[in-house]
Simulated scan of single mutants.
Amino acid sequence: MAKGWTHGMDMSGVSWNDSRTATLITPRHVVMAKHYSRGPAAPVIFHDRSGKRIERKLIAFQPALGDITVGLIDEPVPPNYTPYPLPASSTKISTLPGRRVVVSDKDKNLFIHKIRLVGPGQITFEQDEEDLYGWGKNLISGDSGNPSFLISGNKLVLIETHTTGGPGSGPYYGDANVQASIRRAVSKLDSNYTISTVSIP
């Protein structure tokens, strides 16, 4: 809803009503940091691009690989709220270091960082010190679970949720094993839905 440089970025699938941020990956499934998750019956509030508010409740949970919990909300969200695709597991991780990402925090702020390193199941960012944007942050306690995105065309692709502070580090959502664990968790919670992926050139 912001009118500045973030206006083109669709955050309707991110629930910020609690510092333990939840992010949509299907119309009924969210991901959170395993070490900083909301509890049963916790409200999950989303706002669409025009500011329309909806509220859902968390009713079930399944762990995924690493610092990821997949949660199930009581009703699917309508089409004007966006579940985010994940990077296709075929993405060549050698092409990712140096690419810019949109990093979020618990205060609904967005920053531009760069990918420093991608390893098995994990991704680490760095400040974009060479660039003129100046939009960076050292993440702090309470930012855990907030999402980071790659921009692919006109889509935001969920690439990470924060585990540690500093420039940020957490599970890499394009990792084949991480992704398979998320698919299993989604299916156990409600097999009518599945995650989507996007090929990253």
Rank of each mutant, 00 (worst) to 15 (best):
G4H: 05
T6K: 01
G8Q: 05
D10S: 05
M11E: 03
S12F: 01
V14W: 04
V14N: 07
V14K: 03
D18I: 04
R20F: 14
R20D: 06
R20C: 09
T21M: 07
A22F: 09
A22D: 07
H29T: 00
V30T: 11
V31C: 07
K34A: 09
S37C: 04
G39Q: 05
G39Y: 14
A41Y: 14
A42R: 02
V44T: 11
F46W: 06
G51L: 03
K52N: 11
K52V: 01
K52L: 00
I54Q: 08
A60F: 13
Q62C: 07
P63G: 06
L65K: 15
D67V: 00
D67G: 05
I68D: 13
V70R: 08
V70T: 01
L72V: 06
L72F: 14
I73G: 03
D74L: 03
D74M: 03
E75H: 14
P76S: 05
P78A: 07
P79V: 01
T82Q: 14
T82K: 15
P83W: 05
P83T: 00
P83V: 00
P87K: 10
A88S: 15
S89A: 13
T91M: 08
T91V: 01
T91F: 11
K92H: 14
I93D: 12
S94N: 09
P97Y: 13
P97C: 02
P97R: 02
P97M: 05
V101A: 07
V103M: 11
D105H: 09
D107K: 12
D107R: 13
I112R: 09
H113T: 00
L117Q: 11
V118D: 07
Q122C: 08
E126P: 04
D128Q: 06
D128P: 06
E129F: 15
L132G: 07
W135T: 04
G136S: 05
G136V: 13
K137Y: 15
N138Q: 07
I140W: 14
I140C: 03
D143H: 12
S144L: 10
G145S: 07
G145Q: 03
N146C: 15
S148F: 12
L150W: 14
I151C: 06
V157H: 13
L158P: 10
H162S: 06
T164I: 12
G165M: 08
G165I: 13
G165T: 08
P167Q: 05
G168W: 15
S169L: 08
Y173E: 02
G174R: 09
G174D: 09
A176M: 06
A176G: 13
A176N: 14
N177A: 03
Q179V: 00
A180W: 11
A180H: 14
A180C: 06
A180S: 14
S181L: 01
I182N: 12
R183E: 03
R184Y: 10
R184D: 02
R184G: 01
A185N: 04
V186R: 13
S187F: 13
L189Y: 10
N192R: 15
Y193K: 09
I195C: 09
S196Y: 13
S196E: 02
P201Q: 06
P201G: 14
